[in-house]
Design a binder for these strands. Structure first.
Length: 243
DNA sequence: TAGGCCATCTGGTCCT
DNA sequence: AGGACCAGATGGCCTA
């Protein structure tokens, strides 16, 4: 169908990394940074931790009538599909066969009558399916707001790539915000304080030597700001002060 | 054909 | 007790 990133040797996040590399240049350069750490963190997630507010959200029991939601057409027509939402005699047989295959001790509740048990199982399956659909909807929502090529000709991000990309996007935005704050603080220091030495603790990037405005730091404020953006900065209080 | 990704089923565990 | 969450198992689809 659509373009798909090349496979990578297996390993934590290997294929997802390839997927990230398939992103358009800027997005990849900006967001792929720190991928390895993200993958490691993802692999080491504390499963079962934090059962936060989501736990109280409630996916809702089947309605009073016990009606199960229509099972979506499964992608595969295999064994998984044959025991989905709809009930039939064949499915009951398949259910029993599977139950026997799993052997003793595998039954969830031996005290229930098979019919009851089967009905409960179907209801649990439906809930789980709904939960996974909600999770996928949330992932779609996430894909919609992170920067990568959204187009019908581009295969959508995998789940793992979506999460890793989102994480890196958040980190990047946080970093940009931080730099912007430092810049505003620097511009607001005023001419007297703006020598490279005096300004060093507040310069963006924390390094006067690499700070692009160090040469302009000694200039009067409007000139200093203009050397950055071409015009006095609207963010700088000195540029906006009345003489 | 192997490997990656995914949907679904399932049993176990925890929480309300 | 029932619901939510989790992880393992299974099987289908797709691509290199």
């Amino acid at each position: 169908m659509s373009a798909r990133p090349p496979s990578q040797p297996s390993g934590p996040g290997g294929a997802a990394m390839a997927e990230l590399k398939s992103l358009s240049g800027d997005a990849y350069l900006a967001l792929s940074h720190g991928y390895a750490a993200a993958a490691a963190a993802a692999a080491g997630l504390a499963y079962g931790a934090a059962r936060g507010p989501e736990a109280a959200r409630g996916y809702g029991a089947p309605g009073p009538g016990g009606d199960l939601p229509e099972a979506p057409a499964p992608r595969g027509a295999g064994a998984a599909a044959e025991s989905s939402g709809e009930q039939s005699g064949d499915e009951d047989d398949a259910f029993e066969q599977r139950r026997r295959r799993r052997g003793p001790g595998a039954a969830a509740d031996g005290r229930r009558r098979p019919r009851e048990q089967r009905s409960l199982r179907l209801s649990i399956n439906a809930r789980e399916r709904r939960r996974m659909h909600d999770l996928n909807d949330a992932l779609d929502g996430l894909r919609a707001v992170i920067p990568y090529a959204h187009s019908p000709s581009v295969r959508k991000l995998s789940k793992i790539a979506t999460l890793l990309l989102a994480k890196n996007y958040i980190l990047m935005q946080a970093q940009a915000l931080d730099e912007m704050r430092r810049l505003v603080a620097f511009l607001n220091q005023g001419p007297g304080l703006a020598t490279p030495v005096a300004a060093a603790p507040l310069t963006p990037f924390g390094q006067a030597a690499v700070y692009p405005f160090s040469a302009a730091a000694a200039l009067p404020c409007p000139d200093k700001c203009a050397s950055f953006s071409g015009t006095p900065s609207a963010l700088c209080k000195h540029c906006n002060e009345k003489p």
